[in-house]
Nucleic acid binder design. Structure first.
Lengths: 137, 137
DNA sequence: ATTAATTCTATAAAATTAGTAGAGTTTAAT
DNA sequence: ATTAAACTCTACTAATTTTATAGAATTAAT
């Protein structure tokens, strides 16, 4: 399951994607439109900024706007930024690889092979869902 | 990501699947073979029993054995039993449906549609991974 | 200067996860 | 009957993660 953070991030990105290109959206505006606690959203938008998905303008009349194209922000990206690995175990992950704490012999692990298959299929599906594709629905 | 419980459950099922049909495995035997804390495994095996995946024989010389066929225990089953919904949000789940706490209008939610697609694809993949398919690798 | 916005750091409450403890029950063998 | 060896059940605890909240600092337009 997605964390609230990841869900809120997606809702915020969807909001931004539906505004005019030139529009800069204030945090409070996004928070109210998408039913997200404002102070929590502040943190999330900063994370999205650090991830180079959105840009910001500081000071009066400042706010946030999409930095990347809607077509280039995928569900996989947002999952990774807020919830980490797509894979079901760290040993089957591409971007968050780690050995399982209880692993004795990774190359002989029966579980790992199946989980790599799942990761490949899930990832393909998640990369197919973009902010643009969600808005168009 | 899978919880330790789900991972341990899968490892325990894989162990059982590799024993002879008639063999009854003690908890301590599975725990040592699969590097799982014994007391934790006790709970997990009870959950698997309540889910009708394994059967047990009580008393001296008792233990656990597979109840369902290896071909009929899928990754999706174990995920659902220990980690709940396959879907990324409760509103996109078949077996664990729930409204999102922050949802204003579910039928108009842009996120939900995409997440249902993901759930369908992930589920198909996870139903394709069985204990039997993992053992054969 | 003032106002309105983002940015940053720290904190806190709640929920979940991972694991432990110990008593109780069942069964087989002696 | 008694004992030994196993599963069964309930409760508890420690650690971690999640979900926020608070408040001061910074930035920019008027």
């Amino acid at each position: 399951m997605l964390s609230h953070k990841a869900k809120y991030a997606l809702k915020a990105l969807l909001y931004l994607a539906q505004q005019e290109e030139t529009h800069v959206s204030r945090t409070i505006e996004i928070a109210e439109a998408a039913s997200i606690p404002k102070k929590f959203l502040e943190q999330i938008l900063l994370d999205l900024k650090r991830g180079h998905f959105v840009g910001s303008k500081q000071g009066k009349f400042g706010g946030y706007y999409l930095l990347k194209s809607k077509n280039d922000i995928t569900l996989a990206d947002i999952h990774r930024l807020f919830d980490g690995a797509i894979a079901l175990l760290p040993c089957a992950s591409l971007n968050f690889y780690e050995r399982c704490s209880d692993c004795v012999n990774e190359s002989e692990c029966l579980l790992r092979h199946g989980l790599i298959t799942i990761r490949e299929e899930t990832l393909k599906a998640m990369e197919g869902i973009t902010i643009a594709s969600l808005v168009k629905k």
